[in-house]
Design a protein around this nucleic acid. Structure first.
Length: 481
RNA sequence: GGCCCCGUCGUCUAGCGGCCUAGGACGCUGGCCUCUCAAGCCAGUAACGCCGGUUCAAAUCCGGUCGGGGCUACCA
């Protein structure tokens, strides 16, 4: 039997990191087994589903590099893969259940339900609706004719129990005394999640349902529906949820949870993928930087951890730096050029591009985020330098600042304009003044780049060019004096 | 309240009864390198929630307890 898994987000929000991880694990599982990964849109909630979210989910998956073999956009042999297009099918199944006695039309009002809940709470038992207000077919037809159609509920057999072997959690048992007769078709004729999702899993021949732990308690309902359809149940695997640093369920409160926020913040897709993969799954050895190919080879549901993970981006930032350093110098230079152009709001000239390419490797080995990189080389492309206030105050107030800036002007005026030439000229000047490089170079760094933190100085000076370098030293001297 | 899941360093995890004086990674601290910041290298810091039981032996098995999370909708 070939493996078929699906990721079935509902477009009621941006694709968040938890959803991204679920998608990734499904994808990894499918690729590992040479099976099919299917992308479905669980959009039965017409009120909250939007096109913006539909687009974001597609964009974010694409950005992560997760592709799918069947599903929305790419098609396949199961229709549109959008639940909103399959309401007739769900109704057909629900009505079939009524005919076979597996489900019934129900007349319970919200007051009836509330009473049952209150009584259950008071007596310390489970708040379970048991079908005491179910309608006969005739009575239901009357209500339909009267324009007040009743919902259809699934009749859970009690006493009874549903047990299954969860691929990550092991055996899980639910006593039917705690599973109530749930609505499968709403009074407006639309299916609930339980029905639509399960019917799709059966119709699309899904073999493994890998999803968040938040649906673990709904699983008996899904198994019951599956069996009522006369189908074989899939293997279920419930992934633990992601928590915020305070241990509570991850939410907006904890900062960015949308995948797109990480793209915007300057993270690389492979870094995010690697981080998400490691968050709750262990590749088996002590190495945490894992290539996609290795992930596919080693991924198993058995090595997915059961306990919830805190989504802490500290390690992600480190990992992103690793991936940035892993880029080829050429690829990084191109990316840097793009970022700088965006930062400046204009295209770069050929000469500018060349100086950027020269400096790019030095920026690359320092970067953690793509977004921090353009500001670091901005000094190369502006006519007038903006000085970082704290840097200036700290460095230019020192006694050696003025002397060094002046000394550098004459030293650089006659030096050979290469890294070695500039370095030799400045070191000689420093020697003459009896200053260490450590102290003597900082004023020059601020004078030439505007900040006490910059790419290595000699290379930066060369990239700035002699005329501008001398001009900046003159400006700095004036400012000091 | 009821049901279900989970509980190893601050964080992510390895560990499947003896190899555990509990390993790795990130972070943090210190050092080396050094023109700043990074990177790199080296060292250090720090955990089996608690109580019982089983066993010659328990982080590993069992029970309880405490703690956290999820579900408890005609949301998904």
């Amino acid at each position: 039997m070939t493996v078929r898994v699906r990721f079935a987000p509902s477009p009621t929000g941006y694709l968040h990191v938890g959803g991204g991880r679920t998608a990734l694990y499904n994808w990894l599982f499918a690729r590992h087994h040479g099976g099919a990964f299917i992308l479905r849109s669980d959009d039965t909630d017409a009120q909250r589903s939007t096109d913006e979210f539909r687009a974001d989910i597609l964009d974010s998956l694409g950005w992560l590099g997760i592709d799918w073999d069947e599903g929305i956009e790419v098609g396949g042999s199961h229709g549109t893969y959008r639940q909103s297009d399959r309401f007739d099918r769900y109704r057909e199944v629900a009505e079939g259940f009524v005919a076979s006695g597996a489900a019934y039309y129900d007349a319970a009002t919200s007051d009836d339900l509330k009473l049952i809940r209150d009584q259950a709470t008071a007596s310390g038992s489970s708040p379970v609706y048991d079908g005491r207000h179910q309608l006969s077919i005739e009575a239901a037809q009357h209500r339909v004719a009267a324009g007040d159609p009743p919902p259809i509920r699934f009749a859970v057999l009690r006493p009874g129990e549903t047990r299954f072997e969860d691929a990550v959690r092991g055996e899980v048992v639910f006593d039917h005394a705690n599973v109530d007769d749930f609505v499968i078709l709403r009074s407006d004729g639309s299916p609930t999640y339980h029905l639509a999702s399960t019917v799709d899993d059966v119709d699309y021949a899904i073999t493994h349902v890998i999803r968040g732990e938040d649906i673990l308690s709904s699983t008996p309902k899904h198994i019951l529906i599956t069996e009522a359809m006369g189908a074989e149940r899939p293997t279920y695997a419930h992934l633990s949820l992601l928590n915020g640093p305070d241990g509570k369920k991850l939410s907006k409160r904890h900062g960015d949870t949308a995948i797109r926020a990480y793209r915007d913040a300057g993270f690389l897709p492979p870094a995010v993928v690697n981080f998400l993969a490691i968050l709750g799954w262990s590749p088996g050895d002590d190495e945490e930087i894992v290539s996609l190919q290795d992930m596919v080879e080693r991924f198993e549901l058995g090595s997915v951890s059961k306990n919830p993970a805190v989504f802490d981006t500290t390690k992600l930032e480190w990992m992103n730096g690793v991936y940035i350093r892993q880029m080829s110098p050429e690829a990084f230079a191109i990316e840097l050029g793009r970022l700088v152009a965006g930062d400046l709001g204009r295209e770069l000239s050929e000469a500018e591009t060349q100086s950027l390419v020269d400096l790019a490797p030095l920026v690359q080995e320092r970067a953690k985020l793509l977004t921090e990189v353009a500001p670091q080389v901005r000094f190369l492309f502006v006519d007038e330098l903006e000085y970082d206030r704290a840097s200036w105050d700290k460095v230019m107030a020192t006694p050696e600042a003025l002397a060094v800036v002046e000394g550098a002007r004459s030293a650089l005026a006659g030096s050979e304009w290469t890294h070695q030439g500039v370095e030799a000229a400045l070191r000689t000047m420093l020697d003459e003044q009896g200053l260490s490089a450590r102290k003597g170079l900082q004023p020059l760094r601020v004078a030439l780049t505007g900040s006490s933190v910059s790419p290595p100085l000699f290379e930066s000076i060369v990239a700035v060019g002699r005329d501008r370098a001398l001009e900046r030293l003159a400006v700095a001297k004036k400012r000091i004096g």
